[in-house]
Every structure is written in structure tokens, then in C-alpha cells.
Design a protein around this nucleic acid. Sequence first.
DNA 1: CCCATATTTGTAAACGTTTACATCATTTGC
DNA 2: GCAAATGATGTAAACGTTTACAAATATGGG
Lengths: 339, 339
Amino acid sequence: MSIKDVAKLAGVSIATVSRYLNSPEAVREKTRKKVREAIRQTGYAPNTLARNFRRGKTSLVVVVLPSVGDPFFAGVMRGIWRVADEEGYSILIRETQFNTHAFDEYTDIVFSKQADGIVLLASISPFMQGDAEVTGKGGRVPPIVVGCEAVAPQLSPFPSVRVDNARAAAEATEHLIGLGHKRIAFISGLAASLLTRDREQGYRSAMAAAGLAVSEHWVVEGRQTLEGARAATRRLLALEARPTAIFCANDEMAMGAMREIRRAGLRIPQDISVVGFDDIRYAEILDPPLTTVAQPVEEIGERTMRRLCRAIDGGDIGAGPEIVSHRLVVRESSAAPPK
Amino acid sequence: MSIKDVAKLAGVSIATVSRYLNSPEAVREKTRKKVREAIRQTGYAPNTLARNFRRGKTSLVVVVLPSVGDPFFAGVMRGIWRVADEEGYSILIRETQFNTHAFDEYTDIVFSKQADGIVLLASISPFMQGDAEVTGKGGRVPPIVVGCEAVAPQLSPFPSVRVDNARAAAEATEHLIGLGHKRIAFISGLAASLLTRDREQGYRSAMAAAGLAVSEHWVVEGRQTLEGARAATRRLLALEARPTAIFCANDEMAMGAMREIRRAGLRIPQDISVVGFDDIRYAEILDPPLTTVAQPVEEIGERTMRRLCRAIDGGDIGAGPEIVSHRLVVRESSAAPPK
DNA sequence: CCCATATTTGTAAACGTTTACATCATTTGC
DNA sequence: GCAAATGATGTAAACGTTTACAAATATGGG
């Protein structure tokens, strides 16, 4: 059941069979027919393991993300897959469960030839431990491209693809300010996530630009999860001067916030406005439909993966972030504050 | 940067280095120290590609599922991952996008050594094309275990892990009947999916057992998607004798149904009750929280993967389905019908 | 019909491991 | 202290491909 058996049956050398498989135009039609028939008879399928070994390529790419359950990542994955299929890669998924991992844990995947490259849809901040130098063994950085997430300033040359999170968060905040809100709360994700910090910073700068003070009680950590956001919202609703709007660092958390607001007997948006971030596919079917910032998820996935492929092939992929455009999608969860 | 370099530097043979890595107890501590040091100095990492090739094992398992975006599968994946980590497997994900694939497309993955086995979270029905015989090349069936989905009766010996879909659907329907509903609609998934047919059959048998006729207008195809269910619901709401309850073949579709019911200005559950299936993590935070059938998703994932691992190791995994228990979770989306 | 050239095929080495077997070193029992 | 037994290490083959190079065969021009 190996190439040898096919060769024997076809009466040719194994080199010819190999050529038949990899560059058929290099073998005569008469021979091709013999080989084709021999393959049919033996039911031969090339041993991918041996092939990859010989080629020194796994044809595997690892995608590291915090949580597969998150519908946001499903969109990014779709983009990654499209390119992966084109380029002949299979995708290996590793969930971080929001844990941080050491730099080596990722780079070793490449150095030990478990995969050819890595798409990191998770925070790169743990990488900064120790000095800011990010190098793999032997001083070379393996092919890694960061998608969606922000990258620590010290590592700014690190290739990434994302929206301008600070700008987008500022626009979302400005939208609420424009509606007349003054007491706007922010539910952040994980403090460790740079992306979250960028969004928080956008929120703060928009508030400052409008001359609005931000009470420290208004900024609460939603831990990037629906449950975390529920707890955060309960705290916000218990405040003496209750916020009239809540801006959540992502839609998943916005769903949690909406649930708690409802549970408290308040109406959205009449009593409280809610704005999310990501525009996951559930945003539109929430009740009321959620105002949020849309990211071109598939495009991010595609660009990230494409850049990674070029890096794997040894091409020049440039340095630093590639910024794609976001879009504020105004739906019915945001309106003017109550009088 | 290969085992050879380490051996040279440590002044031992490559066999010793290999032994150091795979069965350290077989090498003397003095030698171990030399090797350890050499590995440290060279920054050597074993070449997984070569190792897998030599061992004839990919240590990869492919999980085939209709759609990663579906939160239901996220739970199953978690269970699969837990076992995969234990057993040293990495997971490759293939999305079918609800398309059916030929039997060979799956078996070839194993025969061509791209992976050691397959977890099929998708319908196995396309396999039935031609005769009912399911055999791979050379007459042997590669390690495949079906999770969640039903398996065609002709293929009943095929190993699978799932709940009793018909029974569970019947119980959900009985719950609605018990509340006093008589006009109960059913939004099915994809007609091609056997799982969907089982659930439909459960619904029909419960209706029949209660002496309730099922109008053919009440059974509509939701195409397994949120959008499909919205269209289906619109059709149901336009009916002259509008149903007082809708049972959806999964929660994702229930979300779509709820959205459309709301949009039509009707209240849940006062005007219409809704029941779903799966108990995805959003079920509880919907407004109102969704009555649904809970599946032990992680357990399904674990059991499926465990059975697959045994199959890969050549062990006996028995035949046919392994049934795990479901549970009707009554929340607020179901109540007595309007007078 | 022969030589030069182009095309097709074959030979054999290489990729980096693991492992059976042989060899060498060490311990144990007497 | 020696033989036997045990333990540690080395040698070399094997896994199934791909591919550089050599060899053989076909093609074309004169």
C-alpha cells in the first residue's frame, strides 16, 4: 500500500509514480495510464506523514484563541479557513480559555514542527515578561501573525491585523454623548488584554473631549464573559447615581448587561442605553437589536492568514499593524437618556 | 539542530539522545546530564514531523461539524479537547457548512495519514449513497465515531454517542401539551439530517399519543439556521389558525423564532410559547429565558473522543449508539396558551 | 540512417527519528 | 578476583517520500 507497490504493479520506478503524483506533465501519457491503473487497483493514497516529513512542511497552522464558543471568532475563523483552503493548510485550534501562555509555548509549536505558523487571536502581552525582546530559539522569530488583538508598544513591529480599537471605542462613546448621555459606564474585558485597554482608552478620551468626568465606579471589569458582565452590570445598577448608558467592550458582554438590566425591571433604551462591540450575528436579533461597532471579521481572518502564509513562504510581510476599517452600527438599544 | 547535533555535542550516539527523550529511565544519570546540557545549549526541539512519520501516527484527530459558529458545538468541542489533551491528540476542525460530503472524503483523511481518526458531529446519511455497505478502501472502516448526530438504520452498528432525540423531543412536546396547547408547530432543521427527523418523529408521536392532529402547515423547515427559522416563523404566524406554541429543533432556531414573534408584536409566552433544543449557553439569558432540552454536551464530547481513541489504539469499542441522558429544562418561554 | 538534442525514466541518497540487536561496561555472587 | 548476569550505550536499518543526477529512450535535422 505504498508507492513501492504501485510502482511494482505498474512496472515503473517509484520516482515515476512520485512524478505522476506531483508533476504529471513530466510523465508520458502511456506511462501515466499504467500508473493510474495501478493506483486504482491498489487503492493507494499517498502517505501525507511521509510526504510532509520529506518536504519539511506540516501544512498545518495553529490558531490560538481565547474561546471557541465566542461567535465573534467564528467569523474570523471563516476568513482564515477560506485562505487556508486556497493555500493548502489545515487548521489546528488551541483554546487559551483566557489563560496567558509563555512565549515559548507558541514558538515551540513551530520549532518542533508541529505546525508551520501561528495565528494569534489572543493577547500577546504575556510575551513581554522579562525583556521586551521577542525572539525564538536561535534568535529567529517564527511565523506568527496577530489578528484582532492589540500588540504591546514595545513589540509594535510585530505583524498584526486589526481595527483601530481606540478610535472605534471613541466613536461609540461619542454616539452616546451625542444622544445626550453624560453618565456613561464602561464594562471592560480582561484587564490583561491590551485590546480592552485600547477600547477603554478610546472611551476615556471621548469622555474627556466632551468635558465629561468619568467616575471610577463607572468602569468595571466584565472579564470578557457574559457572566462577568452580568455581575458588573449589577454593580452598576446599584450605584446611587446610576449610569444612563453602558458601553460594553464586546457584544457577548452586552448580552449579559441587557439581561441584567431587564431583570432589574428597566427598559432598553428608554431607561438605559446599551452599546456593544463586534457586531456578532446575534446583535441584530437581540431585543432590542444592539447598537455596536462592526468589525470586518472575515476580512481580518483572511488578511491575517494571508500575511501568515507569506511569512511561512519566507516572503516579506512588513512590520506592525495592518488597520482595517470598523463601522458603527446604530440599532435600537441606544437612544436619548431619560429626562 | 537535529538529534545528531545534540549527540555530537554530548559525545553520545543519537540512539542515546532518543532514549533520553522517550525513556529517560533507560539512560544513566551521568549521561542524562550530558544530554540535558547539550539540548539546552543547542536549543534542540525534537522534530515532530520526523517522529510522527517514524511512529506512523499523526496524533491528529479531525472533528467534522456543520458550523463552528454554533454555540452548541462549542460545548461538545470542550469535552473533545479535554480528552484530546489527556491522550496527546491535536484537533483539526473541518466545517461542512451543512453540505454533505462523500464517504471517501472522510475516510481518505485517515487512509492518507492526515489524521488518525475522525469525530463526526455531522450527519452520516450521505454515506448511504449506493449500497448500505460502509467500508473503506481495503474493506476496513477507519476509526470514526459519530457524536450527537443520528446514524442511518442500515448503519446502526456504526459507533455513536448521543441522546435519545426522539424521546427527548416527545418529552418537550408533552410538556407543551401538558400546559394545554393543542396547536403546536415544529420548526425542523435540515431535512437531510437524521437527527432532525428523529426529533420530528418524537414530536409527531407525542402529538398522536395525545390524540392531537398535526396540520402539515405546522411543520416547517428552519434549515438549521437562525435566518431559516425566522422565515419559517413568519410563515407560521401568517397561518389562519395560528399555532399557540412552537417547538424548534434547536435553540439557535428558537432564537430566530423568538425574534420574529416579538417583531410581530406578540408576547412570549402569553401569546405563543417557544421551546428549543440543546440548552446552549444563551438559552438562559434570552428574554424570556428559553425552555429547552439540555444535552450533556461536554459528556458527549468526552465519550465520543474516548471511544475514538480506543478505536485508534485498535481496541474494541463495541457497536452502535451509546445513549446519554437528556433533561427538559423548563424556563419562562413556555406557559399555558391564551384562552 | 546517424548524431545531437530533448524528453522520459531509473538509481540512489536524503530527510530525522525510533528500535532491534550487538557490543561494551558495570555490578553481583561466589 | 572471575564468570555470569545485568545494565548502558552504540550501530545500523527502517519508515515512505522527493529529487539531483545518471541513464535510457524518443525526436528531429541533416
